[in-house]
Write a protein that binds this DNA or RNA. Structure first.
Length: 357
DNA sequence: AAGTCCCGCAACCGCTTCTAA
DNA sequence: ATTAGAAGCGGTTGCGGGACT
């Protein structure tokens, strides 16, 4: 199977897109949908290869793209997910639905990577660099501070993992206990997961945490049509998704997110026989055959208990920014708040007040 | 004001994965 | 099961603009 020669064809335009080209592409997709990218350029009257059109559409012209500066929370999400998933930009992008993988990748390479490097943290391994430890002027105290920093960072990273597991678990749990919700529209198929749906409860599909908060909280009673109620992150009001098409869109988004997460789990190979270490929790050290059990037993409990404990012990600390809390005092919100604070403290610590500098 | 450097981002390249025949 | 085409993905490049000298 040879490579597609589409971009090698003579006469095809390369380089920056002109407004006219954008308009042609937009107009064509609005009228005909995406269809086959290969045949699209000719039909749309563009002297571009299909690949170029696809990229232009997915990275720039798509109407559901959020452009502009990344919020603090988005930054944090990227850092955490990168610690967990590595350079898997598309997987990371599924948790930032309005951002493209390309944009996230660029942002990581141009901003976040450098910031971590400044903090003395290896942006690849997310651990303090040896040279950062050795180059300090005040041997012992700096080294201790670095180790503390490392512990905090590792802790934050583990919490990110716990968070993903928790998301998966909550969603899975909800799917198993609720109905009025067509499971075929919300499949989660992976080698480690087979979902069943029971008969007697209303659907509550709750997406928590890293991804924008889209929560399916119920159905209107007595209606044969599935109606979801959603709240997106940053919004105060719950929205009712009365139309099946809107709901389907949300379901699709959630499904993508879930499948992405499960696929990321599939890549993990782990051995827990030697006990838990931070390294053993890294991707590629997780055996896919154990993932289901791990998630249901030790892994989730270990991390969630730890997270809750930490939240409780830290509950005296306050931060107004990105607390993610609604003020209802639930463990989740407290957990969420401390979780973000943890990252905030690391990311926002300027070189001048960092013990490393 | 002119030249140089640096940074951010859009786009490209080439490999991998998916899908349908 | 095999194959070829299409799409997806991540690494990299190069251009444009702002900062600096």
């Amino acid at each position: 199977m040879g490579r597609s020669p589409c971009c090698d064809k003579v006469g095809l335009k390369k380089g920056p897109w002109t407004p006219e080209e954008d308009q042609k592409l937009l107009a064509y997709i609005e009228e005909h949908g995406r269809g086959s990218w290969r045949s699209l350029p000719a039909k749309a009257g563009l002297q571009r290869c299909g690949k170029s059109c696809r990229l232009r559409w997915t990275n720039y012209l798509r109407p559901d793209i959020k452009r502009g500066k990344f919020s603090l929370q988005e930054e944090q999400t990227i850092i955490q997910l990168h610690a967990l998933l590595g350079n898997r930009w598309s997987a990371i992008a599924t948790h930032l639905p309005k951002r493209t993988d390309n944009e996230i990748k660029n942002y990581w390479n141009t901003h976040l990577k450098k910031r971590l490097a400044k903090m003395g943290i290896d942006p690849i391994t997310h651990k303090p660099k040896n040279d950062a430890l050795l180059s300090t002027t005040d041997g012992q105290s700096k080294k201790a501070a670095n180790l503390s920093h490392m512990a905090q960072w590792e802790s934050a990273r583990l919490e990110a993992e716990a968070r993903l597991v928790r998301e998966s678990k909550i969603r899975s749990h909800s799917l198993q206990h609720h109905h009025h919700f067509n499971p075929s529209a919300f499949t989660l198929e992976s080698p480690t997961s087979t979902l069943s749906v029971s008969e007697n409860a209303p659907p509550i599909i709750t997406g928590l945490g890293v991804s924008p908060m889209i929560e399916f909280v119920g159905t209107t009673s007595g209606s044969s049509e599935t109606v979801g109620i959603v709240k997106e992150e940053g919004e105060q009001e719950w929205k009712e998704l009365g139309s099946s098409s809107n709901l389907a869109d949300y379901k699709e988004g959630m499904g993508n997110s879930l499948s992405s997460f499960t696929s990321s789990l599939q890549d993990m190979t782990i051995s827990i026989e030697g006990g838990w270490t931070p390294e053993s929790l890294r991707p590629n050290n997780i055996n896919v055959n154990n993932v289901g059990n791990i998630m249901e037993e030790g892994f989730t409990n270990l991390l969630l208990n730890d997270s809750v404990n930490r939240s409780l012990s830290d509950s005296g600390k306050e931060s107004d920014e990105n607390s993610g809390g609604s003020g209802d005092g639930s463990d989740y919100y407290q957990d969420n708040k401390n979780y973000w604070n943890n990252i905030l403290n690391l990311v926002n610590s300027s070189p001048s007040d960092s013990p490393m500098f």
